[in-house]
């Protein structure tokens, strides 16, 4: 089987006037289809830069990046935009939904920029389907400010899914959410992963990383640890535990 993401000795150097910042200093990495990878690291470790390279938002200074077997290093700005549209789905920490635009229209957005022409009826059908996957089809006509944080993030996930990407990239997807909602979102990711979608996410929370199958730890622009998660958490089980804990707290509170 061919790796969906393949980095070969990738570096990224920013030159800040006279000072050169080596954000990524040679990362080699293979991710196979169906993996669920957490990239961890403290701030300044280079994980965000790595994420930007993986997301084709940024080009590596040296090295090769093959996405789904295609070398991306020589691609122009608009070619990379097409690649992002076709093969990648983005989930951000701050949700990044268009304000004053309904959930449905937000999910339809990537299809507006697709190379293939999709009729508005078909756009709508696919958007509703994507919302259905994240369990929000009943909120299609709501505006982002009428939705909770968790719901907004689920709309964002639906948007990332709607063009059936090869890889779902999530940058601190639970960073703005409380722990209970975080578990909920991880549940959505686990469900998608079980259906075969490759997911790579950046997080600095160990608890969250334990929901993934594989953990990478980045320090000073290098991968310092790459291991499978031994005691993987299952979101459904964790939800059940949280519910029980709450009930217990209520029982204690009521006596």
């Amino acid at each position: 089987m061919q790796p969906v993401v393949q980095l070969e000795n990738v570096t990224k150097t920013y030159s800040n006037g006279e000072v050169e910042v080596h954000a990524v200093r040679g990362i080699t990495l293979q991710v196979m289809p169906g993996e669920f990878v957490a990239i961890m690291g403290s701030s300044g470790s280079g994980k965000s830069t790595l994420m930007n390279v993986l997301g084709c938002l940024d080009r590596p200074t040296s090295g090769r990046y093959l996405l789904d077997g295609v070398d991306t290093s020589g691609l122009e700005r608009n070619e990379r935009a097409d690649l992002r549209n076709r093969k990648l789905g983005f989930v951000f920490q701050g949700f990044n939904l268009l304000s004053r635009t309904t959930a449905l229209e937000n999910v339809e957005l990537p299809m507006l920029y697709s190379a293939e022409r999709i009729s508005s009826a078909e756009r709508r059908r696919r958007a509703v389907q994507a919302l259905d996957i994240v369990g929000l089809s009943d909120r299609a006509e709501h505006l982002p400010n009428q939705l909770s944080g968790g719901q907004q993030q689920r709309v964002a996930i639906a948007r990332a899914l709607v063009n059936r990407p090869q890889v779902l990239l999530a940058d601190e997807p639970t960073g703005n959410l409380d722990s209970r909602t975080s578990v909920e979102i991880m549940g959505v990711f686990q469900k998608l992963n079980e259906e075969g979608i490759t997911i790579m996410m950046v997080t600095h929370e160990l608890d969250i990383a334990r929901f993934c199958r594989r953990n990478l730890i980045v320090r000073d622009g290098r991968i310092v640890r790459d291991e499978a998660v031994p005691d993987r958490l299952v979101a459904a089980v964790e939800m059940q535990r949280l519910r029980e804990a709450e009930t217990a707290a209520k029982l204690i509170g009521s006596t």
Partner: peptide, 16 residues
């Protein structure tokens, strides 16, 4: 600006 960033990230060309 942020809206433009979102559009570019999900595949909008300069032209769009």
């Amino acid at each position: 600006t942020r809206e433009i960033g979102i559009r570019l990230a999900i595949g909008a060309h300069d032209r769009d």
